[in-house]
Nucleic acid binder design. Structure first.
Length: 211
DNA sequence: ATATTCTTAGGCCGTCGTGT
DNA sequence: ACACGACGGCCTAAGAATAT
């Protein structure tokens, strides 16, 4: 059971999460831009108008929203923000300690502190604070990078890798084969190097950076 | 400053499903 | 067959935002 205001609030939230206006969401769903107008949610005589199940289905399809996520939004819970509004964070310097990550690159241990993050990211995301100026001019000391070990990495992505020795590197992934990985620096020099895929523990995509 | 585009409000109408 | 209710589309108008 849900109410008229809850289903409309959920659609408003889906639009917001996809950085769309409510008319923009209607258009993306293949509907008339005015379909979800606030003025159309109540008729002139006060009768409540509800979105059709077909329209809701189109919205879910065009935004990649699941029925479960819609249910959470209707219930007033944001499945992303409630999980990711607080992120574990650690500095690059501290992160070189071997106990900070498990074998798959997910945070473990007590060295992490928690920060509040204003955007929604997946539940596995964590933050790394830049400890020095070796990444200038792209990242400077104090910048925060948000990393998701759960996001598929593709050539062109900025990533963080970890060697068997525990050293973290920030780079751009250029190519990836079964045995070899090519990286370039994030700096304008674009120096490139190859490593064997056996020589790194993991790599994870940088999904956000404070700049 | 002006033009263009986008967003929103509101009225009206078409289409579809349901009940009589 | 017809009436009615309901949602979405079409249209206009106005205001806001953005581009030139």
């Amino acid at each position: 059971m849900f109410t008229h205001s809850e289903i409309w609030a959920a659609l408003d939230k889906i639009a917001e999460k996809n950085r769309l206006s409510i008319s923009g969401l209607s258009k993306r769903a293949g509907l008339d831009p005015t379909s979800f107008n606030k003025s159309k949610r109540v008729t002139g005589n006060g009768r409540l108008r509800w979105p059709s199940t077909e329209s809701v289905s189109k919205v879910l399809a065009c935004t990649g929203t699941t029925v479960e996520e819609l249910a959470s939004l209707i219930a007033g819970r944001d499945p992303d923000e409630t999980i990711s509004s607080r992120l574990p964070m650690i500095s690059f310097q501290q992160a070189t300690a071997s106990t900070c990550f498990d074998d798959a690159g997910f945070p473990i241990g007590d060295a992490w502190k928690e920060i509040t993050f204003p955007y929604h990211v997946d539940r596995y995301a964590y933050a790394l604070e830049v400890s020095d100026d070796t990444l200038l001019p792209v990242y400077r000391r104090g910048d925060v990078l948000v990393i998701s070990p759960d996001v598929h990495v593709r050539p062109g992505d900025r990533i963080v890798t970890r060697s068997h020795e525990g050293a973290l590197s920030v780079a751009v992934l250029r190519s990836l084969t079964a045995n070899s990985i090519e990286f370039t620096t994030v700096s304008p020099s674009l120096e490139s190097w190859h490593v064997s895929s056996r020589d790194i523990d993991w790599m994870a995509r940088i999904v956000w950076a404070s700049q």
